[in-house]
Nucleic acid binder design. Structure first.
Lengths: 208, 208, 208, 208
DNA sequence: TAGTAACCGAGACGGTACGTCCCGTCTTTCC
DNA sequence: GGAAAGACGGGACGTACCGTCTCGGTTACTA
């Protein structure tokens, strides 16, 4: 979760940290996010909800940002990309899946907040990237490879170009969904997903 | 800036609010954003920088969120859409312009933060929309009409469909740029803008 | 209270209002003292109650202390000392009269407060003395002279000694009543007044 | 000082309150009273002087009134009543002792102020009574008993009457000294003490 | 089976910022 | 041209959290 100093050498002296406390804290954090939102969430309140002392909390996380990233990250583990038979169907599927996570009150209030904080905190940005962003980007890579296998989009031999293209797709898809959901504050429903897919799929199939 | 209940009835009794104070506060807010970032910015500090009492601040803005939205909003006024001769060139141009605003330290740290807050505050969302978002959406409408005149994209007779399409384009363009700049934290340079334009322009020309 | 447009003769033009304002302010001050007490009374509130601008208030009084002294002072004008036939009866009478003023909520809360302030403000002390204290001390002088005429207490030829004695009596009587009423917070009723009179009257008749 | 709910059960969980902080705060309060007086004394300033956070102050005292009562109360602990051989000498002694405390700048500015506040705050009045007033009333009881032993004043068999008489004496003595010192603002010197003693001693010896 | 080291809860600590109230002063406009 | 209305710079309020620091006590490995 946080710091595993020596994964093989689990035998540190003294009493080990309570695994239950970890789970209770993360759960309490998500509940507090739902009820209070990011800005009203406090460490002390989370500690109380989790039935834990504040010190226990600070022993594991450096602050609110880190705690919330970890608390929200697990929600992105449920992302999958079932093969729906075509590039368009896959894009539509991933858009809807991503949207369903973004609509949850805990992610809605937390995601933009930690991103905002990360603009001035490199360590936090790294944590967000590994805990949240990469979990989504994985889907782009999978879907792209699958489309190449299907022959819907061409192979790109140059690895660098290929990565650049994947990043572009990721920013376009994730950015559009986030913007629709949080800035425009309109629903990301099947209809919008279809419109969006129609807009970018021709581009996906013709560019690199 | 705040509320002008009756624009014609300017004659309220008592001493009128200082217009200089307004300007000084907004300037001080932007400076503080640059130096401290969103989370370390405090109302008291802004007041001190502006040479103004804290009460003067609270008389005009309900809190940090509202103040920052107004302080940052003016930066988006500089957005223009010169006719660069083609749809692709226009898209590329607006992407780069938008990106240049987003790269400024004051917008970078503030924009995501207020969006995050707005997920739990409808009034704030409305303020963001009118002060910032709509100022950009205007460009989409202009560019779209211009492309229709050029014959690059078809006319859409149905006004509702047309508006839906414009909203989609806006979410895709703005979302992608914001995501690239703030979440992925990679530069939105001419190269990326070209790649992005290439990706979506075919879609723009064929859909709706 | 403040503006009476009632009589029909509204007297629109002209100068007045200034004399009314004085009375309205002092009345409002007493009402505020009753409702809020000394420490919660504010200049702005008094101005509002009096239907007067704060500036009008500050033009006449330097601050809360001075205002309250003047507002409360008039209450001491009603003090009288009817000749009750004997020294003891006169003492008892003055004790009860003084007590009845002290029991009023506006004096109760204000008197000790301005005295406390006066320990660090000589001008205020002078104002209290002339506006309040001397109004009470007058009764001691009258009662003493009357008792001398009756032959209950001896004449004192030495004016300085005489003044010293009068001051002593004043401090004992006023001090005891104030202490009973405000510090011990017990009622100064007829019974207590009789006990008090019994205690000091022999002393009064034998000393100086 | 504050509340010791169960003197035997000293083992409350958590970090105990700092006794040093208590002492530092009370000392700082007295110093601030001397330098600034009651009305200019602020909680924040006291905290700073004591090298303590404002919250630490508010954790122990509800406000300025309560704090000042406790800070000043200890000064009254030095009151004693040495047997000076006669009722008159004892009265004169206690008057001078009491006066010497009242002349101190910290008591002078604070005592009347908290009494004034206590007229609208029953809890505060109780605190003043137990922390300050009762400490002095003790002396009356001692001196009275001593005089009875000496045969200077008669025994009073009725306990209720006896208590009433003691209260009366206390109000007269304390009230006169306070009034002389704080309202008349004249010195309570040996001469005044002698005059005062002469005035009331005959009464003391003949009544009740 | 005794030590010992790190854990645990509770809660006080020095701080910072909050948003409000009131101060006493200063415009501005109206009557 | 005096006074209402009300904004102004300023200071203190009492509160909420911050992240740290004792406390007394518990837990589990190690000697």
């Amino acid at each position: 979760m946080c710091s595993e100093p020596s994964p093989g050498r689990t035998a540190r002296p003294g009493r080990p940290r309570s695994a239950e406390a970890d789970a209770a804290i993360l759960l309490a954090t998500r509940q507090a996010l739902v009820e209070l939102g990011w800005s009203k969430l406090t460490m002390g309140d989370v500690a109380t909800r989790a039935g834990v002392a504040k010190t226990t909390l600070y022993r594991r996380w450096a602050g609110k940002n880190e705690l919330v990233v970890d608390a929200v990250a697990v929600l992105f583990d449920e992302l999958e990309l079932p093969d729906l038979g075509s590039l368009a169907a896959d894009v539509e599927g991933v858009v809807l899946q991503f949207a369903s996570i973004l609509q949850r009150p805990e992610t809605k209030t937390a995601l933009m907040a930690v991103v905002a904080e990360s603009t001035r905190d490199d360590a936090l940005r790294g944590r967000i990237r590994s805990a949240i962003v990469d979990r989504q980007k994985r889907l782009v890579l999978i879907g792209r490879e699958r489309a190449q296998v299907r022959g819907e989009i061409p192979y790109e031999a140059d690895a660098a170009l290929s990565a650049r293209h994947a990043d572009l797709i990721f920013d376009v898809v994730a950015g559009a969904v986030v913007h629709r959901a949080l800035v425009s504050a309109e629903p990301v429903d099947r209809e919008w997903a279809r419109d969006f897919t129609a807009l970018i799929c021709t581009g996906l199939q013709t560019t690199t």
